[in-house]
């Protein structure tokens, strides 16, 4: 099964739309609720990162009997030092974004903790790609 969602940079009022859709889909597919919870946390954080840090992006989701694969491809500033970005508490979010309670620097750590495999690749000045895999019988 394949799904795609577009994400608009800067539009916080729509943040979480794809996560909410995926949650519904996974529930309908009778996926273990514990797995649904983890995937939803990871996708929400990845989705919000496009909204908060990039210009626009597309989410590609593939589900088969073994795994859920999510790929988020954005056009944006990219991440110069991915290892640094992965550290808990590191954030370049603007003061406005922080005031809303985003920008705690916990998004990438949440994604890591809630997926079986996380791969972040990025080209500065071009964009970022996040790939997350969750196995259904883990």
């Amino acid at each position: 099964m394949h799904f795609e969602f577009n994400v608009e940079g800067g539009n916080f009022s729509k943040a979480g739309t794809a996560s909410s859709q995926l949650k519904k889909i996974l529930k309908q597919l009778n996926v273990d609720p514990r797995i649904v919870k983890r995937v939803v946390v990871a996708l929400y954080e990845a989705e919000v990162n496009i909204v908060a840090h990039a210009f626009s992006g597309t989410i590609y989701i593939d589900i088969d009997t073994e795994k859920i694969e999510i790929k988020l491809v954005d056009e944006g500033p990219g991440i110069p030092d991915i290892e640094l970005a992965m550290q808990q508490g590191y954030s370049t979010a603007s003061p406005e974004v922080r005031e809303m309670g985003f920008g705690a620097g916990m998004g990438l750590p949440n994604m890591k903790n809630n997926t079986d495999r996380l791969l972040v690749t990025s080209e500065v000045g071009k964009g970022t790609t996040v790939e997350m895999t969750t196995y259904l019988n883990s």
């Binding site: 954080e45 309670g101 985003f102 705690a104 916990m106 998004g107 750590p109 949440n110």
Partner: peptide, 8 residues
Amino acid sequence: DLLSDVMG
């Protein structure tokens, strides 16, 4: 009040 904290 930190959204990622609640999320996590």
